[in-house]
Amino acid sequence: MAKKIPSRSKSSMLTQEENRKDLGFGTKITSERVRLINKDGTFNVRRVGDSFLNSVNWYHRLIILGWRKFFGIIFLFYFLLNIVFACLYLFIGIEYLEGISNEHQQPAFWEAFFFSAQTLTTVGYGRISPTGFWANSVAGLEALIGLLLIALATGLFYGRFSRSVPRIRFSKNIVVAPYLDINGLMFRIIHERDNELIDLDVEMTLSCLDTLPSGAKIRKYYPLDLERDHVNFFPLNWTLVHPITEDSPLANATEKSLADADAEFLIMIRAIDETFMQQVHVRFSYHYEELLWGAKFEPMFDTSVQGDIAVRVSDIDRYQPASLNT
């Protein structure tokens, strides 16, 4: 009978590695004064060495792009595509576009351009019509492309309008303020849109550099427990507080120690958009340079409004000096 081999206990280093907190950035990012999350919530990561086709996702980019840039790209593409087809009609011969008249004193290029626009959008007023094999072939191809582009544009507009985008505004600074008989790390948020967010969950993590006995630096992540990390409704502003107790990673932190460790406070918010009944999430971060010591936020309620609970959104960044508890 084979002798049973006793199981070996895991080493302390392996257990420590398995229990290590990691948000997905790893421990090798040791560059100082480099944010992990940008102010707009995007990751401060740039992929290099990838192929062009893999790095470009036009549909995703057009979905998340701002409205000005989106319409700018749409109109530019529409204009350039009509120029291409107008040049094709001119190459075939303007005489193969029947109905063009010199009475309007319009250059042949613009006649071909506007005929292309009518064909691409399948409007077809009927004043100008193609004749001959090649002119009809180009017009038929353009009509097919126009139908496909209309279907694509419809999908893009639906995707943009059906995508729930929360507009949670964060206070410009994160502060260390007196809290009860201790101190607390605080920041404020408010939802700027009329649609309601429900079942909000907030996570906060401290990212900082740590020096090993060998002198090498690694990045570590410490979860920061919040006084309250969940609310059912979010109609007003919300001040989130991390109590700096003896067990807090910030228990002995100072302004200099956080600067030396290149500290960054990473925030993740999950909620449900009541209008779309979709789960949404928001990312944000504060760098150590945006941390104010000995400051507390001023109230945002407007007491001059009678009969309603009024909140001044513009006051989310207002604070005043405060003496910290020792």
Score class of each variant (00 low, 15 high):
N173E: 04
F276V: 10
Y78D: 14
F276K: 15
F77I: 10
R47E: 06
L209K: 06
S55G: 05
M13W: 06
T131G: 10
E227M: 13
R188F: 00
Y96E: 06
R35P: 00
I218Y: 05
G146L: 09
F109G: 06
Q278R: 12
R8S: 00
G307C: 15
L62S: 07
I37G: 01
S101M: 05
A143K: 15
D229F: 05
D199P: 04
P166A: 02
K217W: 08
S51C: 01
T239Y: 04
F114T: 09
G26Y: 01
A295H: 15
P299G: 02
F70L: 10
N44F: 00
L324E: 03
A108I: 02
A259R: 14
L147P: 02
R127V: 11
Q16I: 01
K69S: 14
K39Y: 01
D199M: 06
R283Y: 14
M300F: 08
L226H: 01
L224M: 03
S257M: 06
G99V: 05
V45P: 05
S7R: 02
T119I: 09
H281L: 12
E142L: 15
T205E: 03
N325V: 09
S285T: 09
V34A: 05
L23V: 03
K296T: 14
K28V: 12
L209R: 06
V45K: 11
A117S: 03
I74F: 14
L185Y: 00
F71K: 14
S7L: 08
G146T: 11
D273K: 12
N44A: 02
E298C: 13
I74W: 09
F79T: 13
V311W: 10
T211I: 12
F85T: 15
V84D: 12
Q306F: 14
Y96R: 13
M277S: 14
D199A: 04
S207T: 01
